[in-house]
Design a protein around this nucleic acid. Structure first.
Length: 435
RNA sequence: UCCGCAGUAGCUCAAUGGUAGAGCAUUCGGCUGUUAACCGAAGGGUUGUAGGUUCGAGUCCUACCUGAGGAGCCA
């Protein structure tokens, strides 16, 4: 019985006859020799078919294979300097499961394509090397996130996707029918529910899809994205900052450890990632505004950063930047005010270097029931909808805090991508709902 | 939602208001070590849609559609 292996394992089988199962990535041929390159999801393998050592019919079959045809190849693995990857397979047999017809060839050729065409063919584009590398880095980032929290005493408690009301009231939500007469909204954050589970488990995190109906049309926005949100009881702003910093350093370290090959394929400057070490630069909102003004930004105290402001602040830094103590007026209702300065809140944003902007936002939450009620009124939020949330302050309230990190923004930064849309298999954007 | 930009062969792009072209892909032929292989040939077009200016429009004007970029909002 000939063993079936993956291309990634081929190096351990040099000299053995094995079977590979995959798709034809490319084919170069001359009259009497052909080099089919096989793709199986784990890597690429150059195969060699020599006319003189194969039955004529088989050689003709190989010579006429079309791109992305599904095939199983049997042959002997051999170390070969000239082959990409260092190993080659001498073809003994090829079984064709489906030959892609030349009347309707595979649309994504080895040449360049425009973004619109590629997005329309996203279901096929995922087969290409570049996309493959990005999705694998994403996998590593997600695994690192989970490993970090799992090994630091956090319990995974996922929060609902159907919610009855806005979590923050400021941004728009996707509305869906919920049976006969009720409306539900797709969640834009698990945070409020996290605050409940943190009072039950101490340290928790949720990780799932999040939805924003904002009509944002930039390289940093999706309407559906994945967010990890830790929340900790008996914790303040400094604890939030420390955990965010530790987590980011851990994630980048893991990607460097396990996904070098992918980063190389993405032509990522690895030195920039190796520089991601604690401590990150810490800065108050006040100082950030002064720096921005000195660099020519129009920002005034009390205003929020624009995309160009974030770039100005981080472009010449080699580590993430933590900005804290934002004006109360520009932040959500649940932020705890600074006890020494009630006009600012104990919130923090983490801005990735190289101009990638905000990847983490969080802070300390209000734990005083009186203040929370006042804020709900000031923001004109329906108090009844928040009864359960107010209960958390009635029954054993404690200082607590947490943050959210957008996975796609983090992956875009680590991969060094221009646009967030390639960091998720099937991106959902303002004008893109398919495939 | 706002501001400019673009739309020509399956794909990526050319074409001064005057005969619609190239590379890749596809088909046929050649080549025993190719590396987005190479060489030769062939097929492939309602120039986004509708109207207008002009002897003549891919090119100029108007509207619409679609897309990509940026702004605002945000992770």
């Amino acid at each position: 019985m000939i063993p079936r292996i993956t291309i990634a394992e081929a190096g351990r089988h040099a000299g053995e006859t094995v079977q590979l199962a995959g798709w034809l990535y490319n084919l170069r041929r001359s009259g009497k020799i052909a080099f089919p390159i096989l793709r199986d999801g784990s890597g690429l393998m150059q195969c060699v078919a020599v006319k003189s050592s194969l039955p004529e019919e088989l050689f003709e079959t190989i010579k006429n294979l079309t791109q992305e045809s599904s095939i199983m190849v049997t042959g002997k693995v051999r170390a070969e300097q000239r082959a990409p990857g260092g190993f080659e397979l001498d073809v003994e047999n090829v079984e064709v499961l489906q030959r892609v017809p030349e009347s309707d060839p595979y649309p994504i050729t080895p040449k360049e394509h425009g973004i619109d065409f590629l997005m329309d063919h996203r279901h096929l584009w995922l087969r290409s090397q570049h996309q493959h590398a990005i999705i694998r880095v994403r996998h590593e980032v997600i695994k690192a996130v989970r490993d970090y929290f799992d090994s630091h005493g956090f319990t995974l408690v996922d929060t609902p996707i159907f919610t009855p009301a806005a979590c923050e009231g400021t941004t728009s939500l996707f509305e869906v029918n919920y049976f006969d007469d009720a409306k539900a909204f797709l969640t834009q954050s698990g945070q409020l529910y996290n605050e409940a589970t943190a009072m039950a488990f101490g340290k928790v995190y949720c990780f799932g899809p999040t939805f924003r109906a904002e009509k944002s049309k930039t390289r940093r926005h999706l309407t559906e994205f994945w967010m990890v949100e830790p929340e900790m009881a008996y914790a303040g702003l400094e604890d939030v900052k420390r955990v965010a910093e530790e987590m980011i350093v851990f994630i980048v370290g893991r990607v460097l450890e396990n996904r070098r090959e992918e980063l190389k394929r993405l032509e990522r400057d690895v030195a920039k990632l190796e520089a991601i070490q604690a401590p990150f630069t810490r800065m108050s909102y006040d100082d950030a505004v002064k720096i921005l003004q000195s660099k020519g930004s129009e920002i005034q105290w009390g205003g929020d950063f624009g995309g160009t402001d974030e770039t100005l602040l981080t472009a010449d830094r080699d580590r993430p930047l933590m900005v804290d103590r934002f004006p109360t007026s520009i932040k959500a209702f649940y932020f705890e005010p600074d006890p020494e300065r009630p006009d600012v809140v104990l919130g923090v944003d983490v801005l990735a270097p190289e101009g990638y902007g905000e990847i983490v936002g969080g802070g300390q939450r209000i734990h005083d029931p009186e203040l929370l009620l006042r804020r709900i009124e000031e923001h004109h939020l329906p108090k009844e909808a928040f009864n359960w949330y107010i209960d958390l302050r009635k029954y054993g309230t404690v200082p607590h805090g947490g943050f959210g990190m957008g996975i796609e923004r983090c992956v875009a930064w680590i991969c060094g991508l221009e646009h967030i849309r390639e960091t998720i298999a099937f991106p959902r954007m303002l004008h893109r709902l398919s495939p």
